[in-house]
Nucleic acid binder design. Structure first.
Lengths: 195, 195
DNA sequence: AAAATAGATTGATCTTTGTCAAGCCTATTT
DNA sequence: AAATAGGCTTGACAAAGATCAATCTATTTT
């Protein structure tokens, strides 16, 4: 049995509102449980991101591959996050990103059209979307500011302080890429900062 | 007479909906016209950003100052944009940013509480907010990707291609800071890329 | 158990970008 | 007209980070 409870809890927690039994039925009827195994792709560059998925379990990376074949990780996503390239999802245009499972995953997925028609009318859900949108705006601003005004070392320190569970959960080469550094550089930063 | 027409047009264009005469009255009653002269501050670090302002005319920079006294420009804002540090505006906590007029400005400003009470209930307005939030999510994602995966030169080329009017309107040292570069580095990039 | 794979580290070297100082040009301001 | 301030460029040098290659270890896979 798939765990819709995680999604219900999440919506109620963020929105500060309660989901009625009816609301829950609507959600259960339209979100489809899906399993993604480690190394499987949720989205491939060039495809349209038709679904967004609420992550019940597992983790994924969103990344591009440049001309030299190097990966650049834009996002690392874990439980209670939404998995999607939102540009492609909203505009239904081909994505420039890949999304790949880093662990076996369980998600609850849905299309944009179904969200608009059936899910958004649920008051708790649209309230959650507003909160989420504010949180995203704030987080994006913070990350951008780090990026233009701090060194790699300072960005790494900030990550340790604010998201310590990320450091434990993901290998260092992925963290490096997320910070816009090479694995070698992050290794050296850690070596020097431990002095 | 202050130009509310710019705001009406903007809301209708983004939302795809029409504002009734009543809607327009509500807007005119709650947004306050304000003039800000070149070099004046709209927001100072440490203060709470109580207002957001729709820019009818003029331009501003949002920036931090680091320990060495160097400015880092997070945002350059012009007509038809909203002026605010949204983190501070939403959460009513002290801002880490300064916002300063780069030209004489005319804005229409309003508090968060008034937006929630009187403005959000206007259907065209809340539809506009949804579109705006999607656009912001997409723009933030694009900028972040540039930042982690491209060199200064590539980021500058992208800015020329996507926002050529920015290059014409603002001095090169501000553009450099926005790109996370020093003025000297941008000067050299331009010199080399013209070959 | 052996082989293959993924990840971390280190050294040597190269590239990109920052820092500091000086000079120049242009548009104000006085 | 002189003075000033803002902005752009250049040079010499320093620092941050990337690249390439090699090695080591731990974990999977077979």
């Amino acid at each position: 049995m798939h765990n819709f409870e995680a999604l219900f809890d999440y919506v109620q927690r963020l929105s500060g509102k309660t989901l009625s039994a009816d609301d829950k039925h609507i959600i259960t009827a339209h979100f489809k449980p899906k399993k993604i195994r480690k190394r499987q792709y949720f989205l491939q560059e060039g495809d349209v991101c038709k679904y967004t998925g609420f992550i019940v379990k597992g983790a994924a990376k969103t990344f591009t591959v440049d001309e030299k074949g190097h990966e650049h990780i834009l996002k690392l996503s874990i439980e209670d996050w939404w998995l999607a390239d939102f540009e492609s999802f909203y505009t239904l245009t081909p994505s420039r990103f890949n999304i790949e499972a880093l662990e076996d995953m369980e998600i609850l997925q849905i299309t944009h059209a179904l969200v608009e028609e059936f899910i958004k009318p649920i008051p708790a859900f649209s309230a959650m979307q507003n909160v989420l949108s504010q949180n995203n705006t704030i987080a994006a601003q913070k990350r951008m500011q780090s990026s233009i005004s701090q060194t790699g070392e300072e960005r790494f320190q900030e990550l340790i302080n604010h998201y310590p569970h990320f450091i434990q959960r993901f290998p260092q080469n992925l963290i490096a890429s997320y910070l816009g550094l090479t694995p070698e550089t992050l290794s050296r930063i850690r070596k020097n900062s431990s002095k």
